[in-house]
Nucleic acid binder design. Structure first.
Lengths: 376, 376
DNA sequence: GTAAATATGAAAGACTCTTATATAAGCAGG
DNA sequence: CCTGCTTATATAAGAGTCTTTCATATTTAC
């Protein structure tokens, strides 16, 4: 329950948070502009900015004033984005990917290592910690680390269930990493992070209700509802489970195609789909039909969630987002046919960094909440 | 966008809202209790309560102090619930049902009229206005009216689409009623109001993620997500449309049963289901099988939304909630079998007043927002 | 009747905000 | 180079709200 009352100092915290939020927009602003934007008087804005300068959340831009107007030049301030760093890590079965960013969300470094899918859980955790250590740009500045991984991840950061990574089920990822890292560690399901990334700087920017279809070896959903990530009561939102809809059958056509077109190779569902997409692009009509059937199955599954949720946007993400219009177009066509209000269907353009990017966003959100809002 | 800054008076509004919220809990409280609960000092609480007394939002309880302790008896206050009334109306094809309540949510009156399903839209609107007029307990005190009706109702209170009531599609219900009634008029989809009612004083009290299955002549969903009503981007959330899942086929078995068991009668899907439920209760095994098949179809549809949303609770409402465990038990069984985290399945106990009750709650929420929070 | 307990009321002090006014710093033109 | 205009900064005065503190009022318990 949110605290709804307060003494005089609450006012300062409130106004301080308002000013900070404006600064976090990334613009370089003067005191006058800040005061107007935050709807406070100039002296108030000045006092708050002085506080923020002392706390190093803001910095003054010396020299080069952009556009010379007449009158005394105003002091100009900006958010001190390089005051802190966060790291977001995508922990998959075969690879670990870490993205380091500053508080402005500017990417400072990206590191990727491949790991064996059979790696035991404790070694995998150690590998994540090691990757984080390597990814640190400035040890002093690291403020939070967020991890995205497959499976059902509960609110405390435990992997309740994972089929994709053997031995991952039951692992307390949060505790394991918190013991190895000296900063707050957040853990979240990968699909939810992917939709967070799309909402932050992807195709879902500005949308409030988004269904994210995650494709790869498995199929899952990430739901953004009312501008907020939906986790579900057991943190299992987005899991498809065994439902008898299109999803379960989705891969059949592309697997059949891959097996008949290239019998020698043994392929995972995802590899089969990628293979079929590649051939379809190259002009193979049978491959194109298989991909279209695949898209149709996905769309059939999507309908069951699109109709009741009424989202504005469906994002096709995961490894098959590269298929682009080959998947998007048939899905859009099917949704147009059978839903009351067809949402727009688009492919993710964030590539395979989307989960790590979403983890960065999660870490930044965490800092926003803990640093900037109540106490400060 | 919420206003995030403010001057000194904001503090008073904030604390005032906090005090009022505590009073709205319905308890009779002393100043000391209020001060502690709202986390403000006693003099502050006293000043605010004086304001509220002057504005007639609070009233002092004279005399009968409940439990005599020693010391000077404290003045005791409560929310002045009878200061205002709201009316919630369920507008269906065959009936109009109005529930009048005070600001405490205490029901003051219930009126019901039957109408012809062929009633033209403007006459239906006039009938609603007339029913509201009749339902008024104290003209001075009426503060808001909320309407629930079938179909897709957009944010401005227009009926964008309705199949259940002929001629209802395209009607601007909000404008039509606002012209006839002297108070704010709110319009919302009936299924969403039903879930609001369950969350207020029904089986969903205290739950944050709820799927409400509305049964009647048509099937739809109401979604409570994160403790808030989900409307969807076109206000069409909960509409099932033409999706090829269990829903569409749901009624087949009970219709077949009704036609074979009692060929003379012509029954709507809903009547068929009610007929089968009645026979099943009376011990007819074939009817029981038909009802079970019906429940199974519903469950199949539910799975497609329960898995991705991961709700805590599924409420079976609408006219078939009376079937109780006859529907609930097979649905629960199926969900237990095929979902990762089966939610609890329960039947609504609000009966056919749930939509009107939800409309009352909507009106009360509206008043809370407009009267009690920002300006006041 | 007195002591203890609790509630009320008033005063003083602190914090933050706003408005108003004076001062500083740059540019334009004589 | 100085004056005037314009905009920004700095300072002071005033108002609103909150808290703490202390004195007073009212009831019960013994």
């Amino acid at each position: 329950m949110r605290q709804e009352s307060g003494d005089a100092s609450l006012l300062r915290r409130l106004n301080s948070a308002a000013i900070l939020r404006i600064l976090r927009g990334g613009e370089v602003v003067t005191l006058t502009e800040l005061a107007r934007a935050a709807r406070v008087s100039r002296p108030t804005a000045e006092g708050i900015v002085e506080d923020l300068l002392a706390k190093r959340w803001a910095e003054e831009c010396e020299g080069e004033s952009a556009d010379r107007q007449r009158g005394r030049p105003a002091r100009r301030f900006r958010f001190h984005g390089s005051a802190g760093h966060v790291i977001g890590v995508d922990v998959g079965g075969y690879k670990l990917l870490a993205v380091t960013a500053d508080l402005n969300g500017r990417i400072l470094a990206t590191r990727r290592v491949t790991v064996s899918p059979d790696l035991p859980a404790d070694e995998r955790i150690a590998a994540v910690a090691a990757l984080v250590e390597e990814s640190v740009v400035d040890k002093e500045k690291l403020a939070a680390v967020a991890i995205g991984t497959t499976g059902v991840v509960d609110g405390a950061g435990r992997v309740v269930k994972s089929v994709a990574i053997p031995g991952w089920t039951g692992v307390d990822l949060q505790a394991g990493l918190a013991a190895l890292l000296p900063v707050p560690v957040l853990v979240e399901n990968d699909m939810r992070l992917a939709v967070l990334a799309e909402h932050w700087r992807g195709v879902a920017e500005g949308y409030r209700d988004v269904v994210y279809l995650f494709t790869g070896n498995r199929i899952g959903l990430g739901l953004l509802i009312g501008g907020r990530l939906h986790r579900g009561s057991h943190a299992a939102s987005g899991e498809i489970g065994d439902q008898p809809s299109g999803y379960r059958l989705a891969f059949r056509n592309v697997i059949d195609y891959a097996m008949s077109a290239d019998p020698g190779e043994l392929r995972s569902p995802r590899q089969s789909a990628e293979f079929a997409v590649g051939r379809a692009r190259a002009g193979d009509e049978e491959a194109a039909r298989a991909v279209e059937a695949f898209a149709f199955r996905l769309a059939e599954g999507l309908v069951t969630i699109v109709n009741p949720l009424d989202p504005e946007l469906v994002v096709v993400g995961g490894s098959l987002s590269q298929a682009g219009s080959l998947l998007v177009e048939p899905i859009q066509r099917h949704l147009n046919r059978v839903t009351l209000y067809p949402p727009e269907v688009v492919a993710s353009r964030l590539g395979n960094e989307s989960v790590a990017l979403g983890a960065v966003r999660l870490a930044l959100d965490h800092l926003d909440r803990t640093l900037f809002t109540p106490a400060s």
